[in-house]
Design a protein around this nucleic acid. Structure first.
Lengths: 210, 210
DNA sequence: TTTTTTTTCAAACATATGTTTTAATTAAAC
DNA sequence: GTTTAATTAAAACATATGTTTGAAAAAAAA
């Protein structure tokens, strides 16, 4: 087993279990059993269970955040060069589209995005704090660009509308792919593109309301 | 200590701790210590920790659901008598307003509503299943009325827009009253009415989009 | 090859958990 | 007042948890 292989296996296994069972409801033994490594490997390689959670977020969130940040900067710069305001929909899309499309970026990424969908409102301080620490700068960037896009809107209202949008996205992520009991006439949606389109329609309309 | 007093104290204490720490992260000892009762009282009065969770939901959700159901039925009946369609905003208001106003209904109700805000996307199967069992019929009723209100909308799109709205509401509940780091120019909102108004604006606009 | 460092492994540690038991206490019924 | 049932209390139970330890194995450096 190569050097970093053990760490990767632990990260994969943690991601899988944290997403399904939650952080506190997942034991190190369940993680290491699933990873096929020794129990002590977690504390050896990561130091603690909490540091492991941070590493799980770190591994996926750094590249994901880079895509989202680049997208947002492009929206901002393009508008600046054109002497116009950034569009609300394209600003939101810059953030939302990579998030919902992330599961397709590789094995285990679906697990991760479920974890993200839940992290924001996780009752566990550890989970929420670790996540917020990773996402806060990006959130502020999105907020700033939306301020440019909607200069007439008060910061308070914009802030809450953005919160509503993020809540909608998080919940959509949690629901997607799950098979709850659907009302009659509703078919389960499994392609990300149409879900993204529906979500963007919804949050853009809500955001642009006068 | 009167007969039912112990049960009430346990319910209050559980509600408080479940909302702040989550179900799995709250121990029976923490609950009974806070309640000032003996550890064995939980299993004596409720049978198990899971049954206790169910009782916590039951106590508040039965009256809350009654208000929401009555409101929804009134909206439906009024429209029927007037020979018109139910309004989208009043339908959503019938569900959302009592939910966000619930914390004012009595001591401990703030804790409960936080619990509700998180329950929907709780990674713990127990919490989610118990909650969904309590909320499912009401959700279907709201869906049916919105179908009447927006007959031209496909069930699939309506379903997801309703999910977005519920996600927005749940997240708003989780955020309300918390003091995260706010962007410049944003002041913490502490009155429920204006939050409700903002949320209703947002989700109604998104729901009514052609 | 020898030495040194890194990694793995099994076992133990200390503590925390939900639950059960049995006796004491309190309240209710007769 | 006596008896019966309901409730409380302290302790123990069985198991699960995150973490640490110290020796063995593997890998890297010398």
């Amino acid at each position: 087993m190569s050097l970093s292989d053990t760490k990767e296996r632990i990260l994969d296994s943690s991601e899988y279990l944290f997403a399904r069972k939650g952080f506190h409801n997942t034991s190190l033994r369940a993680i290491t059993d699933r990873a096929g490594v020794n129990l002590a490997a977690v504390n050896y390689h990561f130091g603690s269970k909490e540091a492991l959670l941070d590493a799980v977020f770190q591994r996926r969130l750094v590249p994901l955040n880079k895509v989202r940040r680049d997208n947002l900067e492009i929206v901002r710069e393009t508008a600046r060069q054109e002497g116009s305001l950034p569009g609300v929909e394209e600003s939101l899309r810059a953030f939302i589209e990579p998030t919902l499309a992330f599961p397709k970026s590789g094995t285990g990424a679906e697990d991760f995005i479920t974890l993200v969908g839940r992290a924001m409102s996780d009752p566990n301080d550890t989970v929420r704090d670790v996540f917020i620490r990773h996402i806060a700068p990006l959130f502020h960037l999105l907020f700033d660009i939306l301020r440019e896009a909607l200069p007439e809107l008060s910061p308070d209202i914009l802030f809450w509308r953005l919160q509503f949008a993020i809540g909608a996205m998080g919940h959509a992520i949690c629901m997607a792919g799950k098979s709850y009991s659907l009302p009659d006439g509703v078919t389960p949606v499994n392609d990300v593109e149409s879900l993204t389109a529906m979500l963007l329609d919804f949050v853009t309309t809500g955001m642009e309301r006068p």
